[in-house]
């Protein structure tokens, strides 16, 4: 099974390492041709506007959007969640729009307000999570399942084979969230 990690900007390397540790083939996605043969794609954290500009310039916006519409499993973390979201409450644009949630950018404040915490995930219990200038999920559509919460707020959601997290699972040693995504990829 081959999993891509969008690598135009942000924390791609850490996701690639997590995937390798789980024994799957992990490739950087920088060009449209890199999408071929993928069983899933991770959209990492970083800066969503910079990521969108770079992937648009690379000609990736349309083919990536098409692949997602055709059901390519996707996992967006932090900025990646913003790229997948249908609505961004405090930003005029929206990007891929394949996950029926409304997110607020930089909802936890400035860099000094970044923190680590345990989040509660269905079927997994407590999972360590790193929140870095994290977005918040403000609305969850009817087809979206909340899989993880922190202080009662949704932080991990799933719609079909699209998974979104407001936090960075790739910065901890705990690989269970990545395993969860791989199980969605195996189902196709």
């Amino acid at each position: 099974m081959k999993i891509g990690v969008l690598a135009v900007q942000g924390a791609a390397r850490e996701h690639l390492l997590c995937l390798s540790r789980l024994g799957v083939e992990a490739v950087s996605v920088l060009r449209p041709a890199d999408l071929a043969g993928l069983s899933g794609i991770i959209l990492p954290g970083g800066e969503s506007t910079a990521q969108w500009r770079l992937l648009s310039r690379a000609g990736l916006a349309d083919p990536l959007g098409e692949a997602l519409k055709e059901g390519l499993p996707a996992f967006g973390t932090c900025a990646g969640l913003i790229l997948l979201a249908q609505e961004i409450t405090n930003w005029p644009e929206r990007y891929l729009g394949v996950l029926d949630v409304a997110v607020e950018r930089n909802a936890t404040g400035r860099q000094v307000d970044s923190f680590e915490a345990k989040v509660r995930v269905d079927g997994l219990g407590e999972v360590p999570a790193v929140f870095i200038r994290a977005p918040a999920i403000r609305r969850v559509g009817p087809g979206v399942e909340v899989l993880g919460t922190y202080e009662g707020e949704p932080v991990l959601v799933r719609q079909g084979s699209v998974l979104g997290a407001t936090f960075h699972p790739e910065l901890t040693e705990d690989l269970r969230i990545h395993e969860l995504f791989l199980s969605l990829c195996r189902k196709g």
Binding site: A7, L30, A50, L54
Partner: peptide
């Protein structure tokens, strides 16, 4: 510089 950073292996 931004593009060189992204496509450093190209």
């Amino acid at each position: 510089i931004v593009l060189a950073c992204t496509y450093y292996d190209d």
